[in-house]
């Protein structure tokens, strides 16, 4: 495993831990989109169908379990925990799941490497992950005022995506036959979705002011 991939996985892990920590310690999910969290839970559930059939490494299995466990517990907290539930900004989090899930499912049925259940589900998860952040970005735009933890959560997620692109470039040049168009194009789309947010995040950090997004 190369350094970009490891750093990418670690920033992904940090983003999830930042979010769980926020929810668990201050019992608040203000500014967090439940829609995005449910989409991530679906992404991991459909991608890791191979968790008990294909063993890659202990690292791989443990990380998969962490991502599955954390994404489902975040959804549980936001839906079921009395205090956390109360801080959920339901009125602004109105993005419709179906608008993302259905097109991704259709695309996965049309464009995939192998027509098997596991492979189509895996491809679906790749497409869905690329757009799953959209409800979160829409919510941030609507509320405009972003607390530090929410900003850091999205920042680390974006860092994870950027590092994965470097990892793919590295693997392309160092490993024979390493060509994955589906993953690359989806990953690129996903990273571009963060570009706007990154711009405001970094400029607010540079000017040392609280992060706000334009309407």
């Amino acid at each position: 495993m190369n350094a970009f991939r490891l750093a990418g996985d670690m920033t992904h892990l940090i983003s999830v831990l930042v979010l769980l920590l926020k929810i668990h310690t201050i019992k608040s999910c203000a500014g967090i989109s439940l829609k995005t969290q449910e989409l991530y839970a679906l992404v991991f559930a459909t991608r890791y169908l191979d968790i008990f059939t294909d063993f890659i490494s202990l690292y791989n299995t443990v990380m998969k379990l962490i991502f599955l466990g954390s994404s489902f517990s975040i959804v549980w907290y936001m839906r079921r925990h009395k205090l956390v539930q109360r801080s959920y900004d339901k009125d602004h989090d109105t993005f419709r799941h179906q608008l993302l899930v259905l097109p991704c499912l259709i695309l996965a049925l049309l464009i995939h490497e192998q027509f098997t259940f596991k492979e189509v589900m895996w491809t679906f998860s790749i497409y869905l992950e690329a757009v799953a952040i959209l409800p979160q970005l829409v919510l941030l735009q609507r509320t405009r005022n972003i607390d530090n933890l929410t900003g850091q959560y999205v920042f680390f997620l974006g860092a994870y995506r950027s590092l994965y692109i470097l990892n793919w470039i590295y693997r392309y040049f160092t490993e024979p036959h390493y060509v994955h168009w589906i993953t690359w194009i989806s990953g690129l789309v996903q990273t571009l979705l963060y570009a706007d947010f990154f711009y405001y995040y970094i400029s607010s950090w540079k000017n040392n002011v609280k992060l706000t997004l334009p309407a």
Partner: peptide, 10 residues
């Protein structure tokens, strides 16, 4: 194409 290997990323 080894599927397990190509799906080794998270």
């Amino acid at each position: 194409l080894d599927k397990a290997k190509s799906h080794d990323e998270l």
